[in-house]
């Protein structure tokens, strides 16, 4: 199945205060302990999202709709992915790619000019069910330039 992530665009609209708790069964890829995340955005953050790990509060990410940085990004879900996500409707999906700041320390004082976004392993979330999965998109890079 092919789906463009652009369908999540309405959720990225300015002023969309937004918070949802999402369960990633089995955790993120290679990070099995990180299963529960709060995903937050608001007018100030948009189009960025804070992705805060409940299981380990010291763990958290910044994410964005991949189409913000790669307009032709196209998500592919395997039958297995769809099953794990509870067979979501197109309109129920939120797709977030994780941004890696230039420095892993992510100091606010340091401009993050060489930040990248991970298109290889986006988080796909069924908003209706509150379940998510990190799906591997082998045709994309883990270090897509964020620009700036």
């Amino acid at each position: 199945m092919e789906r463009t992530a652009a369908a999540t665009a309405p959720l990225n609209g300015a002023g969309a205060d937004y918070e949802i708790t999402v369960h990633f069964a089995g955790g993120l890829v290679g990070c099995a302990d990180w299963e529960h995340f709060d995903i937050v955005t608001d007018a100030e953050l948009s189009p960025l999202y804070l992705i805060n790990c409940q299981d380990d509060p010291s763990i958290g990410f910044i994410g964005a709709d991949p189409t913000v940085f790669k307009p032709d990004f196209c998500l592919q879900l395997s039958p297995e992915d769809e099953e794990q996500l509870g067979y979501p409707e197109f309109s129920d999906l939120l797709v977030l790619a994780i941004i890696t700041p230039a420095s892993s320390l992510g100091s606010a004082a340091e401009p993050t000019t060489s930040a990248t976004i991970n298109l290889l392993g986006p988080l796909v979330i069924n908003l209706k069910r509150g379940i998510g999965r990190q799906v591997i998109q082998s045709e994309y890079t883990a270090h897509h330039s964020v620009g700036g």
């Binding site: 993120l28 890829v29 763990i59 990410f61 910044i62 892993s104 991970n118 883990a142």
Partner: peptide
């Protein structure tokens, strides 16, 4: 992806 998850944590 595992490495990138770890590197992206803030």
């Amino acid at each position: 992806v595992r490495n990138e998850n770890t590197a992206a944590a803030i």
